[in-house]
Amino acid sequence: MSFDQHIVQVVNASLVDEFEMEPEALKPEARLVTDLGMDSLDLMDMVLLLQNAFGVELREEKRIREVRTLADLYTLIGVIKQEMNA
């Protein structure tokens, strides 16, 4: 599966800078909670950070609840951006 590289870069940079993730751990299949060790507060902070970074509304977005992996996150941000531009 291919992702928008800009989205991948921004998401990964946020995770490295704000949550001290190891860059090599940030594989698309990595699960946010079980593999990356994020807790519920981290997830809320991440949503806010990505909202600010991409200028999209994520907090009220119902599909965010279905995000389990980084790939899910890249895809969702891409879809929301496309919907905004449509």
């Binding site: 949550f19 001290e20 807790d39 507060l41 902070d45």
Partner: peptide, 9 residues
């Protein structure tokens, strides 16, 4: 190690 946000929140 990495800090969790709870205390700060």
């Amino acid at each position: 190690g990495r800090f969790h946000s709870g205390a700060f929140k």
